[in-house]
């Protein structure tokens, strides 16, 4: 099918293997000097788009990332995986801290309209804020059907049949394109961005835009009151005998 465009969102997040530390002033987490990478769920979204292109179901893939300058590295990874071109919506690091899914989805929906995308695929959620809102909000702003938590996507005469992960099982739904999909963990196994492909990706087009180019106002709607570590699990105790255990349990009022 010719002229079928896929738009994928790629968020730059703190790498999944990094131990996240909260800033002492409780305003957020430490991001300076911490390894970042593409959100794993977005990687799955990119992979699905690339596979659709390889099956000749799509003609062009465009990756979008919103955030500071370093987001371009994330976009390079996407380009190395097989995306055709990338759009970087640059924001100041300060502004980015207060950016919410609503802002990102407004930008995504504007880009989707402008680039005449037929399908938007994003990760179901980012592993840093765990919002799980961007895909849904984008669908609603565009007034397109949505298929969230996709674990299998098939194309059948113009429509998409999507298997979704729901509580306690799977659900298969049919959506008409244009549509917004969000990827779940079991959708596919993302390929590795190899060194030669990263090098080649440097030649692929990447344009930088500003949120104002899309008429999106990114003033914060929320205020972060406090960011805190989860409570630490308390250490256990060893008991010598059953009697002691029973006494302790009685003391604690558990039996």
């Amino acid at each position: 099918m010719s002229g079928f465009r896929i738009l994928v969102g790629c968020k730059r997040v703190i790498d999944y293997a990094v131990k996240v530390r909260v800033k002492p002033d409780k305003t957020g987490v430490v991001t300076e000097g911490v390894k970042h990478s593409m959100n794993p769920f977005d990687e799955i979204a990119v992979e699905e788009a690339v596979r659709m292109k390889e099956k000749k179901l799509a003609s062009e893939i465009i990756a979008v990332s919103c955030g500071p300058q370093q987001c371009q590295e994330t976009l390079r990874t996407a380009l190395a995986m097989g995306v055709d071109r990338a759009i970087h919506v640059i924001t100041e690091p300060k502004e980015y801290e207060s950016m919410q899914p609503i802002h990102v989805s407004k930008i995504l929906s504007k880009i989707a309209t402008e680039e005449k995308a037929d399908l938007v695929i994003v990760g179901k959620q980012a592993i840093d804020d765990d919002c799980n809102q961007t895909g849904q909000m984008t669908a609603s702003l565009l007034d397109w059907p949505q298929a969230t938590f996709a674990s299998k996507i098939e194309k059948s005469n113009g429509d998409l049949s999507v298997m979704r992960e729901i509580d306690g099982g799977l659900e298969t739904i049919k959506v008409k394109v244009p549509a917004v999909l969000t990827s779940d963990l079991r959708l596919n196994e993302p390929r590795y961005a190899t060194l030669p492909n990263i090098m080649k990706a440097k030649k692929k087009p990447l344009v930088t835009k500003k949120p104002s180019d899309y008429g999106v106002d990114i003033t914060p709607r929320q205020e972060i009151v406090s960011v805190e570590d989860p409570p630490v699990r308390q250490a256990g105790q060893k008991v010598e005998s059953v009697e002691e255990l029973v006494t302790k349990l009685k003391e604690a009022g558990l039996v």
């Binding site: 999944y16 196994e189 590795y192």
Partner: peptide, 15 residues
Amino acid sequence: LYMLRKYRTLKKRYY
């Protein structure tokens, strides 16, 4: 190895 490691971490965290 890297793919599996990532998959397992995410599975443990979210599922």
